[in-house]
Write a protein that binds this DNA or RNA. Structure first.
Length: 486
RNA sequence: GGCCCCAUCGUCUAGCGGUCUAGGACAUUUGGUUCUCAUCCAAAAGAUCCCCGGUUCGAAUCCGGGUGGGGUCACCA
């Protein structure tokens, strides 16, 4: 099997994007399965949108998800440098070759001039495009402008009347008419290459064999193919993944979705849940499995099971995975592991009573969707609780409730503080006085936790502690008296 | 608008000419367990397989057209 060299080529323009991680997954799988390498190259040729911290965020995001790479990034490798901004002289050199062999030409049109040109075209009802005004310019004139040091770009001389096609590994045969392709800018006037030039040169020089990227690049591919031809290079295989979408089916965006990898960490998602979830976006496991690890994915992933339709990013499903993986973690590695994760990600308040952390976790872990849920699920264990008297009196009058609370207090006063004893005392009281279970338990739950939904009462009380429970019951009694008086 | 890509339950998807009265998962609803919630278990509901033609004995699956959605048309990637 041919060793496949694949890559992702993110731009450091802001956040580490979830789509980048998704793409990385499939690129990695392809490389791994063939014994090849997966490369990270940083495409930082756009100085206007450059964000200094962005690159580090990309590495951090991928590292958090556990997605490794073989070359580039902070690792380097045999094809250095892996930052396009460090490869300017290379692009310069190759652009010159294209000028020399007639595949490219200088264009001295200013941005303002081109803007005017487009306006005119639109006014005339034409579609805006470069009109080729410098395509066949007089060489003498070009030389004069060059000698004069006039600002210029270098454009690709797209041949006329050609059909440019390729066999896409995901989509099959795709074809474009060359006449519809603009004479693409290859070199900007600031001496930086455009994406199109840089990506082709780098992919070739770095010996990338398979370009697996998003569908948004599909209409750029013919331009790239032309460049391979212009250089006389063998093009790589191309495969275009569908685009992950917002709920309204548009391409997934910051505005309508959370697309930052790291923000999922901040929100309390587990990397294995995120991985499992995104792996199943536009792809299905050959055995129909819904739950599997990154390792397993890397072994069984294949392009022929990649769907052509853009999947919608559905957080509900991610939530299910997250709850599932939290439970799985506890079952396989114990509560301590959950505790460590919670601490590591900063979801445990500094004044939380650590000695009862595991006891508390045992009671709430099945109820957690994200790690961030820990706070809300557990605040009443160690915080003052706010009790709504209306909830206390929902299904019984004040006289009865007050009696129930007082008796409960009496029954609990002297017992040895253990779950079984608490249960025995309370159930005993309940039977003896023939309280309606649903009313009595709920009332007591509210009195002690302030909430209507909590872990089982007896265990909860056991963790909260004897003195605190009695204090809360006392408070509830006063509350009921107050409500009764008014 | 031109060009290109795409089209199965609300969502993620299985399906690659007959085994499909279309299967699974999430979400939803109901029942069971239970002191509530959650977990767990069971069940239900949910898709004219976008529409119309064609090919075929036979189409969700192949072909054509339509419609719808998406992407792209920058000195951004």
């Amino acid at each position: 099997m041919q060793e496949k060299r694949t890559r992702i080529a993110p731009s450091p323009t802001g956040i580490a994007h979830i789509g980048t991680a998704w793409q990385a997954l499939f690129n990695l799988a392809l490389a791994r399965q063939s014994g090849g390498q997966f490369v990270i190259r940083i495409e930082d040729t756009d100085r206007k949108r450059f964000v200094p911290e962005a690159e580090a965020l990309i590495y951090e995001g991928l590292a958090w998800l556990g997605i490794p790479y073989d070359e580039g990034g902070v690792k380097g490798g045999p094809f250095e440098p892996y930052h396009q901004s460090d490869r300017l002289d290379i692009y310069q050199e190759y652009a010159q070759k294209l000028i020399d062999n007639g595949w490219a030409y200088y264009c001295f049109a200013t941005p303002e001039e081109l803007e005017q040109m487009r306006k005119d075209q639109i006014a005339r009802g034409e579609l805006p495009r470069y009109d080729g005004r410098w395509r066949d310019a007089d060489p003498a004139e070009v030389k004069k402008r060059l000698d004069n040091g006039d600002k210029h770009v270098i454009r690709l001389k797209v041949p006329k009347g050609r059909v440019i096609g390729w066999h896409d590994l995901i989509r099959g045969d795709v074809e474009f008419q060359s006449d519809l392709i603009d004479d693409q800018i290859l070199m900007k006037s600031d001496g930086f290459p455009t994406y199109h030039l840089a990506v082709v040169i780098d992919d070739h020089l770095m010996q990338i064999t398979h370009v697996l990227r998003g569908e948004e690049w599909i209409s750029s591919t013919p331009k790239h193919l032309l460049l391979y031809e212009a250089f006389g290079w063998e093009p790589p295989e191309f495969a275009h993944m569908p685009l992950i979408r917002n709920t309204d089916k548009s391409k997934i965006s910051k505005r309508k979705n959370d697309v930052s990898i790291l923000s999922y960490r901040e929100k309390g998602y587990l990397p294995e849940a995120v991985i499992n979830f995104i792996a199943l976006l536009g792809w299905s496991h050959p055995e129909g499995k819904e739950v599997f690890s990154l390792e397993e994915f890397l072994q069984v992933a294949s392009l022929d099971r990649v769907q052509k339709t853009g999947p919608i990013f559905d957080v509900e499903r991610l939530n299910w995975y997250n709850g599932y993986y939290i439970r799985k973690m506890v079952e396989e590695k114990g509560l301590a592991e959950l505790g460590r994760k919670l601490m590591a990600y900063g979801f445990v308040d500094f004044d939380f009573p650590m000695d009862v952390l595991e006891e508390v976790l045992a009671l709430v872990y099945e109820r957690m969707v994200t790690l961030a849920d820990f706070a809300e699920l557990t605040d009443f264990f160690w915080h003052e609780v706010e009790v709504d008297p209306k909830l206390l009196l929902k299904k019984a009058d004040a006289t009865l409730v007050k009696m129930q609370l007082s008796l409960t207090k009496a029954f609990l006063e002297t017992i040895a503080w253990k779950t079984e004893n608490i249960e025995q005392a309370i159930r005993g009281l309940c039977e003896q006085k023939e309280y309606k279970k649903s009313q009595y338990f709920m009332m007591l739950r509210v009195a002690i936790t302030g909430k209507t939904a909590t872990p089982p009462l007896f265990e909860t009380m056991a963790v909260i502690g004897h003195d605190e429970v009695l204090a809360r019951i006392n408070k509830a009694i006063k509350l009921v008296e107050g409500a009764d008086a008014s």
